[in-house]
Design a protein around this nucleic acid. Structure first.
Lengths: 113, 113
DNA sequence: AGTGTATATGCGACAATTCGAATATACGGA
DNA sequence: TCCGTATATTCGAATTGTCGCATATACACT
């Protein structure tokens, strides 16, 4: 297959996308942006993180095309470039929740023995 | 909310999970494992990567509970711990494909002007 | 016990990422 | 034009991840 290279390139890009998701602050920001466009100020307040940190993470996601920024007067409003990213996040989140549940159930059984 | 800590902890775990996905070789391995349990030998041949590299990546995913290993005679068969991981991967992949398509369409338009 | 195939691990070099602190830029109003 | 608020960027340190190479372990068969 000649498009073996294409496949590899796609895996590379997909890995980059996943790398962009691989930070707790960024995941929280994406979740917040799921409710619609929001100014940085809101995101800083909602996450409780330092402003510079939030800006840095937004910059990372912006550079990789995961979010888009738009100036609105003195503010900059961020929004999701593709809402489907949340579908992917919710799947992994649900997987984690289920795993924690199983672990907890097991701990109860083992602890009871 | 008292479970703000829970939420943060969940984001941390989710980030770890995404970090585990953030490598092209691992994404390819997961895709291959989607077809069912497979010995390392197969995975090495299918990916064309060095055996040590494949083993290292399988070890990473095993330690983080993304795949499970089972000895079968002289071989070790790997399989997905939770097939839902592929659903998440397919979403991100489709997002990428759509984005590339849009970029390509735009390039054609711009190039034609 | 010894050999061959299958798989895993240890190590060192290198690249990438994250954070806090400080500073820079942009915009609206007085 | 100067100020205050909003946001972005730069820098250096610390941490983490990946790879190739070499080697170690596990099992089947003789």
């Amino acid at each position: 297959m000649i498009d073996l290279e294409r496949k590899r390139e796609l895996y590379r890009l997909q890995a980059e996308l996943c790398q962009t998701l691989a930070d707790p602050t960024r995941l929280e920001l994406l979740e917040l942006l799921g409710e619609g466009p929001r100014p940085v100020k809101d995101l800083v307040r909602a996450t409780g993180q330092r402003q510079a940190k939030v800006s840095q993470h937004l910059a990372v996601m912006r550079q990789r095309g995961m979010v888009v920024a738009e100036r609105v007067g003195t503010e900059v409003h961020y929004s999701l470039a593709d809402p489907r990213i949340l579908d992917a996040c919710h799947i992994t989140r649900q997987m984690l929740i289920d795993r924690l549940r199983r672990q907890h159930a097991l701990a109860v059984v083992v602890g009871g023995e």
